[in-house]
């Protein structure tokens, strides 16, 4: 049985090359020849990153790597990972969010798919052309809108969110002053050549990007027990852990390369400065909790899961 796995990322990019492709090979081997998972990288089955979930719903692809942030409103509870000062690393974040899913705390869209992995990226920090040290420096600056979760905080800081900038357009937007800063991590900075256009990097965990590997539930149900077992063997917590560690490692390596090649000042905040930012951005957390059913309970559960995962790693 052929399973089509769509990735909007080019075949040589980190996640597709080092995580998804080996996953497909492992599953194929474990199924004893029953499954043939084929990777369609670089958007060869659907080039719009925002349409990846629709590909699985429509049956164009059987499995896809989905970034729910591109379609605000879907997999909404996962946006908890976008809150600042919560996810310290992809490893802990992915571990924690998978635990949440496993305990049945994430509902809605999560129940309609076979989830092979529920993950978090490494935390995003603030990459900027202008020097930003304190929240007050943000006033009047254009910032790439990182998704609805942080909009309230950006507004409160007096900064202007700019939407519609895709990752490949990031460097152009930075160099033209369309935006003066963006929340991102060094993996993306390297891939999309943002390094040459930025001068400062404020190193604080300002929220991660939730990601999913989604499989069509009907397709999964129709597979033989042996095929299901082959998929299950490499899915769930195993997948999320592998993903998180690999993501963190790639970001760390990219960070060294980018900093060596470009003139970028990394600002490491002290405790007072961190406190200032925590206070300034707290509004996004308050808003998130108020905007979700059981918001406080979800927040507490996720914070506890992060603490547990951080201790374990």
């Amino acid at each position: 049985e052929i399973l089509r796995f769509s990735s909007f990322e080019p075949p040589v990019a980190h996640v597709t090359k080092n995580i998804l492709t080996p996953w497909a090979e492992n599953v194929n081997a474990a199924s004893g020849g029953e499954l043939d998972v084929q990777i369609f990288p670089g958007g060869t089955l659907g080039r719009n990153p925002a349409q990846q979930l629709k590909l699985v719903e429509d049956g164009v692809a059987d499995i896809a790597w989905v970034i729910p942030g591109y379609t605000p409103g879907r997999f909404d509870q996962g946006t908890i990972g976008e809150l600042p000062f919560l996810v310290p690393s992809a490893t802990a974040g992915s571990d924690a969010i998978w635990s949440m899913y496993e305990q049945g705390l994430l509902g809605g869209d999560y129940e309609n798919f076979k989830l092979i992995g529920v993950m978090m990226s490494s935390p995003n920090a603030l990459a900027s052309a202008a020097e930003i040290r304190n929240p007050a420096d943000m006033k009047g600056l254009n910032l790439r809108a990182p998704g609805p979760t942080m909009l309230g905080a950006i507004d409160a800081l007096g900064a202007v969110p700019v939407g519609g900038i895709t990752a490949p357009g990031l460097a152009e937007a930075m160099s033209r002053g369309l935006i003066s800063g963006t929340f991102t991590q060094f993996g993306a900075i390297e891939t999309f050549r943002v390094g040459e256009t930025m001068s400062y990097y404020l190193d604080m965990p300002l929220g991660a990007t939730p990601m999913l590997i989604v499989m069509n539930q009907t397709k999964y149900n129709g597979l033989s027990d042996e095929a299901k077992a082959a998929i299950d063997q490499y899915s769930g917590r195993v997948f999320s852990d592998t993903f998180g560690q690999s993501f963190d490692q790639n970001v760390a390596e990219a960070r060294e390369r980018v900093l060596a090649a470009n003139d970028i000042t990394v600002i490491e905040p002290d405790d007072a400065m961190t406190k200032e930012w925590e206070d300034a951005l707290a509004v996004s957390t308050t808003e998130w909790i108020a905007g979700h059913d059981n918001g406080q309970a979800l927040y507490d559960a996720f914070a506890a899961a992060i603490a547990k995962a951080s201790a374990a790693n």
């Binding site: 719009n48 349409q51 629709k54 590909l55 429509d58 049956g59 164009v60 519609g164 895709t166």
Partner: peptide, 23 residues
């Protein structure tokens, strides 16, 4: 190769992607 349902769905998703593309 894939089936009519998914194939027909391309007729909404692709025009829609193109029409809302800023590029």
């Amino acid at each position: 190769v894939v089936g009519w349902g998914p194939a027909i769905s391309l007729l909404a998703s692709e025009p829609a992607s193109a029409m809302s593309s800023l590029d």
